[in-house]
Amino acid sequence: MDLSPELGKKMYRDMWRIRLFEEEANRQTSLGSVVGALHMYCGEEAVAVGVCGNLRDDDYVLGTHRSHGHCLAKGAESHRMMAELFGKATGTCAGKGGSMHIADFSLNMLGANGIVGAGIAPATGAALASKLRGTDQVSVCFFGDGAAARGTFHEGIGLGALWKLPVVYVCENNQYQQWVPRMNVAVLDSVADMAGSYAIPGVSVNGQDLVEVYEVAGEAVARARRGEGPTLIEARTYRFYGHSLGDEEQYRSSEEVEEMRTNHDPITTFRSTMMDQGWLTEEEDAQIQNEVRDEITEAVRFADESPFPTPDNVTTDVLAPGQEVA
């Protein structure tokens, strides 16, 4: 296995950070502290963590409306993210973005995105910037299976392939386009098969298996860094919650969800792998989970105690400082 015990532990912790951050955020919606849309990533953690485990700090990541996992995996601070969900001035985006638009430019996390498929061409553009500057930074774009139906998928990947740009396109195929089972509205089962249209490699992986995601993404990132062009990865995954808050989930059975939670939870799967390898003890596992719980408790405290933005912030950040807004 092409993975060190240290990185394994870090990735295991990151999966817990995502899981507990979101479960707490979800709980905070019932308390009225978190408002607006909340698209839960739980169940898909191995994709963000397995891909980002291959990235350098200066690599670019662009996400989706379901991007808490991408931000945390790239290194975003949970307390500032929680403050953003609370709409506070101390949030990652000063309370102007919210769940669907979290970005952290200090980490080259160039933003979640509320429009399906809208990150694909910008990720390609960030890769073009790396190439123009002569750096070997790689761009990663996460998007859902719904995005594969959009024109931006075709145009963005087409340009990345044409110019052999250092970009990895990661489709998180969680089987449902909002409420519609994917195959009700698609003809091609595997999104990876679409790579042939752009003469780039297309690989389908089990998105519930962190090791598999890590290894396939590692090859794609290395290939991009060597200047050999893009790869399209389809991670077949599953979201444990509904599309967003208040989803009655009439489009899938509770048995199906239970089966995935019980037998295909990426965290328990990877915990077994870690323990089988002798890389994680019960005590270490308990310690990691406790530390992450403390981190999330602290995140909520920080968010709770932070001030809301003041009215003078309504008109800032429309244009660069110095430009007046009427």
Binding site: L110, A118, G125, A126, L159, W163
Partner: peptide, 22 residues
Amino acid sequence: FETPIAEAGIMGVGVGAAMAGM
């Protein structure tokens, strides 16, 4: 960069490159 006929792709590439400092 001379592109295929792909206005959304062209504009999106511009946005991403601009966010990345170009």
